[in-house]
Design a protein around this nucleic acid. Structure first.
Lengths: 222, 222
DNA sequence: ACGTACAACCTTGCATGCAAGGAGTGCCAG
DNA sequence: CTGGCACTCCTTGCATGCAAGGTTGTACGT
């Protein structure tokens, strides 16, 4: 996670991070119309780097640039949560299937080592009822699995999904803290299933786990 | 597929398409260093829109901008073909699993209607031995399945995979034309498996089919 | 009162100017 | 002949100027 406000970063990068942060945290609503000068002025940068930032965000699907009007923040689509969850499940299952394939013992070992610290951290956050912190740790846990598979394409896609999901979680933080420990336990189980080379069990666990994570962190029904 | 040379398109868009085309077709090699003026001059546009095009291509993973040096065309990574195939399989399987889920009859019907023309076209191209044309039709066939699922996130990712795959196919066009009819037959089988709501059969077919497609269109071993 | 036309403003798209930072080259000393 | 150094050129990063297009508000006519 890059620092949001890094004075040493180039102006275009600062504009990109600032606008993205505003969109992901919900500081600007879907449908809002952003102007380049309006964004650049508070940052003390001119229109050019802001324009470049808008282009990057358009490529990520967060903005839509309408010529000579401005940039509209694309609203989260109605079924987007389902879409994201479905793709997450597909990518993560595929990652585990590669991890349990022959010759991936080293990658599996590295993953097993990495998750030890992550699981401990999660259980701490769950016990403390830190929903926002747990959400971050949850994202990191799942991303670590995909990264461990060594599939660079999948890893890149998965990072983009994390952004989208973060955006969907707006306003639903703070509820159901009592369920966090359950999610943490499920993480531990799934890590064990990877270590045991049981992709079917992992996929079955993942299916329910993602639904429950969605319910707790994104405000759906348990 | 947008027209590559559209004089009415804005300069930034023209630069984007031109450079992307050059990268995807292999006109510029991986590792090449592109300069903004060098790209803009033949198109009669200045550095600014070219710079914007570079940023978009960097977001897509096709370029890497190194400050005050230029833009290097990122070479295709060693295991990229495998990575792309794996993600394609994951996304496409997930799409079919949604398509066969309850309440998706209308989407399945639309897909069935759409593939009729695609299959006929493919068989024509296969018979004619038009490898490049078949490659396009193949991409469209698979993309149509993902689109039919209605998962916008997956559809976007899948389009990006098509670009990457197109790039990997450089230089391998023209071989094994006799196998095209087999690939076309497999498409027909897989379409039938979707219509029959048999996702397991589809996934099994897809696994072998993608490997064979890779072999024929991308120059791997059959 | 309502519809229409005009005009002013605000927006981006692009070109250009300026400055900063490396990389490569040529020269000089040993 | 070789190693080190300074210089020059080429590159991008960003600001700004200008023009084109769209939207909105207003005033006028009916």
């Amino acid at each position: 996670m890059p620092p949001i406000d890094d004075p040493a970063a180039p102006a275009a990068e600062r504009a990109y991070r600032a606008v993205k942060e505003d969109i992901l945290t919900g500081a600007v609503r879907g449908g809002s119309l952003l102007s380049e000068v309006e964004v650049g002025a508070p940052l003390g940068i001119s229109r050019t780097p802001v324009h470049e930032a808008f282009l990057r965000l358009q490529a990520e699907g967060l903005l839509e640039l309408v010529p000579r009007r401005g940039a509209v923040v694309v609203p989260v689509a109605p079924g987007e949560a389902r879409d994201v969850l479905e793709v997450r499940r597909a990518l993560e299952s595929a990652a585990v299937r590669r991890l349990v394939s022959p010759g991936q013992d080293a990658a599996r070992d590295r993953l097993a080592t990495a998750v030890v610290a992550l699981l401990a951290e999660q259980e701490r956050l769950a016990a403390a009822g830190d929903v926002a912190g747990f959400a971050r740790a949850d994202t990191e846990f799942h991303a670590t699995i995909v990264e461990a598979s060594g599939n660079a394409v999948a890893t890149g896609f998965y990072a983009s999904l994390g952004d989208r999901q973060r955006r969907m979680a707006i306003g639903s933080i703070g509820a159901h803290t009592e369920h966090l420990v359950v999610l943490a336990e499920e993480h531990r189980s799934m890590a064990a299933e990877v270590a045991a080379c049981d992709p079917d069990a992992f996929e079955a666990s993942l299916r329910g786990h993602l639904s429950r994570t969605h319910a707790v962190l994104l405000g759906g029904a348990w």
